[in-house]
């Protein structure tokens, strides 16, 4: 039987970690772009657009991410389209991330005083121009900390992609455990790697938050 040394286990986990990082980055950036579009719709005061985003957000916040992964993985296949675990994971995590980011950012937009909207309206700026030149530059300052904080949730969320067979950190851990029968060691290492990815982000988010509080 093939023998795995500690370094074999660790190096295999680190190779798989790359996929966790790639999946997190794609989910975060695509989710951010979708979230920004949804944010414009959500704050547009155009009723059908607001309703659509409300339902979208309720769905993705109100159902488990795992169910969403299943729905994308098995659901799209029903239409005769072959979906790879990679594709399903990317789509599900993107939409899930966008729903949360939209809500976080909406809170930041609503924290901007009403007078800023009224003054920019009175200067004949359109809604898109108001958002671009007046509201978002101010809202984005207060959005940085909670957004970075949420990125930690995205990284941990990618672990669920292991269940539909996408080989990232958690899946690699499971496979290594099956080969080595050393679950405590393997999963300790997996947890440690997640921690090393997440801790700097949450530490950074706290730091930004503190700096903003001093500035005000």
């Amino acid at each position: 039987m093939l023998q795995f040394s500690f370094w074999d286990i660790l190096s295999n986990l680190l190779i798989a970690t790359q996929w966790t990082i790639v999946l997190s980055l794609i989910a975060f950036f695509c989710g951010g772009i979708v979230g920004l579009v949804l944010l414009f719709m959500r704050t547009s005061r155009i009723a059908p657009l607001e309703w659509f985003t409300k339902i979208y957000i309720e769905f993705f916040q109100g159902t488990p991410l795992l169910m969403q992964l299943f729905l994308f993985f098995f659901g799209i296949a029903l239409f005769g389209v072959e979906v790879s675990p990679w594709m399903a994971a990317t789509l599900a995590l993107t939409f899930w991330t966008s729903a949360f980011l939209t809500e976080i950012w909406r809170g930041c937009v609503e924290a901007i005083p009403k007078g800023q909207w009224e003054a920019s309206s009175s200067l004949a700026l359109s809604y898109i121009e108001q958002m671009r030149y007046v509201i978002l530059p101010q809202a984005s300052r207060i959005a940085v900390a909670p957004t970075v904080g949420f990125s930690v949730q995205v990284i941990k969320g990618t672990a669920l992609a292991s269940i539909i067979g996408f080989v990232e950190l958690t899946k690699a851990g499971t496979m290594l455990n099956n080969a080595t029968f050393r679950p405590f060691l393997v999963y300790s290492l997996v947890a440690l790697i997640y921690f090393c990815l997440c801790f700097p982000l949450s530490w950074w988010a706290k730091k930004i938050e503190g700096r903003l509080n001093v500035a005000r």
Partner: peptide, 25 residues
């Protein structure tokens, strides 16, 4: 329109506040 609470855009300088609408609109 000028408001009771001024409502200047805090992230822009005085000149940029004044320049915004002419350049954008």
């Amino acid at each position: 329109m000028v408001f009771q609470q001024f409502n200047l855009f805090p992230h822009l300088t005085a000149a940029e506040n004044v320049m915004l609408a002419p350049t954008v609109v």
